[in-house]
């Protein structure tokens, strides 16, 4: 009977400790003995080791037998899986994008002296992003695995288990479902912009290391920062808009109009930024004053910076304009549909 004892121990080792392991072991033991006895009787001679081995082979590997008793062979079950995937997508994309932006800003502002330093800065940045993403993945999975095990099914009803009312199909389908990560990302980005432009303006400059000391070359002029109060208002409005979208889950007439107003305000501010005094402090003069650039390249780079800043604002204004027209067309179409 030695083999049966060992077999039962092997099965027991693979069973959850608290869920009646001893009971299962005892029952398995008595069943195997019954079966062996049965076979010996049929064979007409006492059970030997051969017979025991044949029986255990038939009964299956200890892993397989233990698995049949495991009521939950998964970490996150089908009930939680859709929500788990959704949360994972949001968390991983937010972590990746925020860290990419932060790393980009760090590298840009530290302006490493040599190519080697630049590569090592990029390498360090990427490896810290990868490890942050992996630990975020682990944390989310851990939380869901705990929820799966300790929250009773009835307390965590998922959307599709709740009573569904077919009457909800009677309403006009709204084509403008908001994907949940869109407003979340928009809020986070806008909040980061608010923080940098109001409290961390040094991040917007260029840190240059020459003659054994750091010089900060501001990227933007006072002419730009004079517009900050108005820009702040549009950014705060943007956060409020996305907060509303997060709650309602869909675009409606009011949110569309709200977003058009914000975009128009943005275009107006952009117009004044382009036509007013230069907004970037990078000029041929300031670049030459750093002592890094010779007069010719300072001239070229400075002019490029001046034109580039205006070009970027013009591009943003153009894209916002297209967005306004698209939203306008959609609103008019919806209006004529409802009128029909």
């Amino acid at each position: 009977m030695k083999l049966i004892d060992r077999y039962v121990t092997e099965v027991g080792r693979r069973l959850p400790l608290l869920k009646g392991r001893r009971d299962i072991e005892n029952e398995l033991h008595s069943t195997l003995e019954d079966m062996l006895e049965d076979r010996a009787r049929k064979a007409g001679h006492p059970a030997g080791e051969d017979m025991e081995m044949a029986l255990l082979k038939e009964y299956g590997s200890p892993q397989k037998v233990a698995a049949t008793y495991n009521p939950m062979p998964y970490l996150v079950g089908p009930r939680m899986y859709p929500v788990y995937l959704m949360v994972l997508r949001i968390v991983l994309s937010v972590v990746t994008i925020v860290l990419l932006v932060v790393t980009g800003i760090q590298i840009a502002t530290q302006s490493p002296a040599t190519g080697g330093q630049l590569f090592s800065a990029i390498g360090n940045g990427l490896s810290s992003i990868i490890s942050a993403v992996i630990s975020a993945f682990g944390m989310v999975t851990l939380v869901f695995a705990i929820l799966e095990r300790y929250v009773p099914a009835e307390e965590l009803k998922m959307e599709d288990e709740k009573e569904w009312d077919p009457a909800s199909l009677m309403k006009e389908p709204e084509p403008a479902e908001v994907k949940i990560w869109e407003p979340i990302l928009a809020i986070i980005f806008t909040a980061i912009l608010l923080a940098i432009f109001n409290f961390n303006r040094e991040l917007l400059g260029f840190h240059i290391f020459t003659d054994g000391k750091w010089t900060v070359l501001p990227g933007l002029t006072d002419a730009f920062f004079r517009w900050m109060p108005l820009i702040n208002i549009t950014w705060i409005a943007e956060i409020i808009l996305n907060g509303i979208l997060l709650r309602t889950g869909r675009w409606g007439l009011a949110t569309h109009l709200f977003s058009i107003v914000i975009k128009i305000a943005g275009i107006v501010i952009g117009y004044f930024l382009i036509t007013g005094p230069s907004i970037t402090a990078l000029t041929p003069e300031t670049l030459q004053a750093t002592g890094i650039f010779d007069p010719d390249s300072a001239q070229i780079l400075g002019t490029m910076a001046q034109q580039g800043a205006r070009g970027i604002i013009a591009l943003i204004m153009f894209l916002e304009g297209i967005d306004i027209v698209k939203t306008g067309i959609r609103l008019v179409r919806q209006g004529s549909l409802q009128a029909a």
């Binding site: 398995l28 019954d34 009964y59 049949t68």
Partner: peptide
């Protein structure tokens, strides 16, 4: 019935059930 006697009883009546199915089912 105990597990094995139930298994044999079902088998005598024509229903072959795998032990790996029956025992966990009884517990459930």
């Amino acid at each position: 019935q105990y597990g094995y006697s139930l298994l044999k009883l079902l088998s005598d009546l024509g229903l072959e059930v795998d032990q790996g199915t029956l025992y966990p089912l009884l517990r459930r």
